[in-house]
Design a protein around this nucleic acid. Structure first.
Lengths: 150, 150
DNA sequence: TTTTGAAATGTTATAATATCACACTTGTGA
DNA sequence: TCACAAGTGTGATATTATAACATTTCAAAA
């Protein structure tokens, strides 16, 4: 059952992302519970990276004030499914529209507008030490996006 | 004055690194004060990445127990000079023997032995979004080093 | 040599980020 | 219906980092 009737104002793209998430959960036999759904919505609605305690604040208005574990559990779940990423250098989180499986995303964060873009696949592992097997990579680039540079 | 007489057991390589640090500070007109020197020594002696509060513990035995700001200030100073890096995904710090200037280091952390290796220069910025100007990059690879794989 | 001003440090407190532990609920399949 | 696993609620606490302000240190100017 995909009940969209209670959704806050999501753009079409955000709505699409929710449907993708629902489908993904369904595939994996996971449940997109209200708490998880709400956190994903907030991530999608956020302008850019958002911090766990800011999510917490945004959840407060709802019925039953959320506590930290609620948010961190939801984030862990979403990250597990590749629906969200943590930006390690910011201790902040972003929703991820594309990479629903692969581990390594390359993230570009504009320090002026907070916009986030992702790239995948390009596993520039050519420069790894000899014999080093990469299991997980954190790649975060900070700079100025084309829009802000203009 | 480079007084090495009070140094704890440092390997030759570690000792060399201290001399490099001294030279660098001298070049830059910065002071390698006892607190900064001590933290750098501890970073050099650490097997791998080490956390700020672990450094704090290691500083305790010395005269005058250190407080968090002492450690964070020393780390900030060392990072400023490129003598240390923060590993964002671990909230831990490592000494850096090579990159005394350039911003972007690519770090490889073995999850079995905690060993850390670095590579520089390879600015695989080819896959950046069109028009995006990278100012700072965080690149951290986790996996298994050649020694541990053997 | 004394003054002095910037840099560094000491110290207390607190902010920001994240997890533990355990009780309770809920949904699902036996 | 029962039992179990997954999810959630809740309070406490652990971990990581910084703010604010007093004090010290040190080198260079007077």
């Amino acid at each position: 059952m995909t009940d969209d009737s209670q959704m806050p104002s999501l753009t079409t793209a955000q709505n699409d992302a929710m449907h993708v998430a629902e489908a993904l959960c369904s595939d994996r036999g996971e449940r997109l519970t209200p708490a998880r759904r709400r956190v994903l919505e907030l991530l999608l609605q956020a302008e850019g990276p958002i911090k766990a305690y800011d999510l917490l604040e945004l959840l407060k208005p709802g019925p039953g004030a959320a506590k930290p574990p609620t948010v961190y559990r939801a984030l862990d779940f979403l990250m597990e499914l590749g629906l969200a990423h943590k930006i390690e250098a910011l201790n902040a989180y972003v929703s991820c529209a594309h990479c629903h499986d692969s581990g390594g995303a390359e993230i570009f964060i504009c320090t002026q507008c907070d916009g986030v873009e992702e790239r995948h696949g390009a596993s520039h592992s050519s420069c790894a030490p000899d014999g080093f097997t990469i299991q997980r990579s954190v790649v975060e680039h900070f700079g100025v996006c084309a829009r802000c540079a203009a």
